[in-house]
Design a protein around this nucleic acid. Sequence first.
DNA 1: CAAACATACATAAATCTCTTAGGTATCAAA
DNA 2: TTTGATACCTAAGAGATTTATGTATGTTTG
Lengths: 116, 116
Amino acid sequence: MLYSSELIKGTLRTIILKLLCDQQRMYGYEITQKVKELTNNRIQLTEGALYPSLHAMESEGLLVTETEYIGKRVRKYYSISKTGKAKATEKVNELAEFMETMRVLLNIDLRTLTVQ
Amino acid sequence: MLYSSELIKGTLRTIILKLLCDQQRMYGYEITQKVKELTNNRIQLTEGALYPSLHAMESEGLLVTETEYIGKRVRKYYSISKTGKAKATEKVNELAEFMETMRVLLNIDLRTLTVQ
DNA sequence: CAAACATACATAAATCTCTTAGGTATCAAA
DNA sequence: TTTGATACCTAAGAGATTTATGTATGTTTG
């Protein structure tokens, strides 16, 4: 089951920043696969959203890139800057608080929730 | 503190449907106030988003309206239909699963989270 | 008693984020 | 040799919301 994508809106940057906080460096395609794997195919990032988002965060100084060649194929690695790290923390905290607020508002019982 | 509103996107209908599930009937302005109160001013629904959303859900048969006059002032009450109730459950469950997935993905520890 | 604020509805243009759809190219497997 | 995976990218369109605006009544306060 895939989530109705409206929900993903607004969380893409948070996901990317948090992943890059933990993983040192990753390239775009790798990010899509990692998210897919970590969420048991529940969240499938689209490239049309991912790449522009990566480019934007690079130009904002949140991410830094280095390009490498694997054979003849280009691979663009992204890693997180100091500013990016701060932004990651901020965004994750904000999302956490938002989720907690929604949990209370909608009276969602997380104890009975197991996603697998 | 108000949430950066991107997060709210995609959850507006869920909030409205769930509230109307619990409250029998409410009017638009009342919904904004109730959400504000229940979230300690954290979520502030904008009227530009709320009213079109209510109108859409009415035309989709999820909500039913009755108009009343309080003095000379119009008040439009919304209540939830049977279809709406089913939709509410569906949407709340979907959001709950999405939040749980995000919690795992971002490694958010809800035990240390207290929103107040 | 007038101004400010709250209540109560509504619409429309602009904005933002993402999807859909397309494009290019390399590499591995069947 | 064709299919599928890897790997990058952009642009048009869609969808949900914000911002701005409008109308009008009721209440409070200086």
